[in-house]
């Protein structure tokens, strides 16, 4: 057990400690007294639905213009990454995230906002705000959900590998292609809109598609 912090009786003064009952550090079993562990009662289907809705809602918010982040480069938020500002090798593989859509990218009703924020909304004094079309949420599946589905699909295809006939193979390949196409499209769209060009801060991930060979031992 290591001593933490400047507690009484540092390493050089064992004498002080020996007479004391105070331990400078506690093991988990001491910090958490014995407890009869409760059990969560069975989750119903309805509750599951609520959870999925909630998580997908969160996804929508994260994808939207309202998830506001700092403009400064370096402090970059990664979907699921560790947000401590340190660039990592693995960053290049993270979802290329636009650092926020522009906050102005929404049909705000100017009258609802105080005068001092009108400029932030992009309203030049005297003129009306240019009309922006509402960006209805794409409601992309909560990424874990998607991952799990992909994983399940992967598992299945792995299991069926032996019995795979040509038709199946084609089907799966087609699906992959479609996914890839969609992703490419999305990325292009994202590039065009918004004030913040995320491209500057990331490697272009597209080149990596062909390389998914498995030699990527990302150092995490």
């Amino acid at each position: 057990m290591s001593l933490r912090g400047g507690r009484s009786g540092g390493p050089g003064r064992p004498g002080l400690l020996s007479g004391l009952d105070i331990k400078p550090d506690f093991t988990p079993s001491e910090r958490y007294p014995k407890l009869v562990l409760p059990i969560q009662s069975t989750i119903t289907d309805e509750e599951r639905r609520c959870v999925q809705n909630f998580l997908q809602f969160q996804q929508d918010v994260r994808d939207s213009a309202f998830y506001v982040v700092e403009k400064k480069p370096g402090i970059v938020e990664y979907e699921g990454g560790i947000n401590d500002g340190i660039k990592r090798y693995s960053d290049r593989f993270l979802k290329k995230r636009k650092i926020g859509k522009a906050v102005t990218d929404h049909p705000y009703i100017v009258d609802f906002f105080p005068q001092e924020l009108h400029s932030t909304l992009g309203v030049k004094s005297g003129t009306k705000r240019k009309h922006v079309k509402l960006d209805l949420a794409a409601h992309k599946k909560h990424f874990l959900e998607a991952a799990a589905l992909n994983a399940a699909a992967d598992e299945e295809s792995a299991e069926n590998a032996a019995e795979l006939n040509d038709d199946d193979e084609e089907e799966i390949n087609n699906e992959d292609d479609i996914d890839e196409e969609d992703d490419e499209k999305d990325e292009f769209e994202e590039d065009e809109e918004g004030d913040y060009n995320a491209e500057k801060y990331f490697d272009d991930g597209e080149d990596d598609y062909g390389d998914d060979g498995g030699d990527d031992e990302a150092a995490y």
Binding site: L35, V36, L37, P38, I39, Q40, S41, T42, I43, T44, E46, E47
Partner: peptide, 15 residues
């Protein structure tokens, strides 16, 4: 399950 009456005590934080 699902008709929940023990929300606070069925999670460790309660007890």
């Amino acid at each position: 399950g699902g008709v929940v009456w023990d929300a606070l005590t069925e999670v460790p934080c309660g007890p």
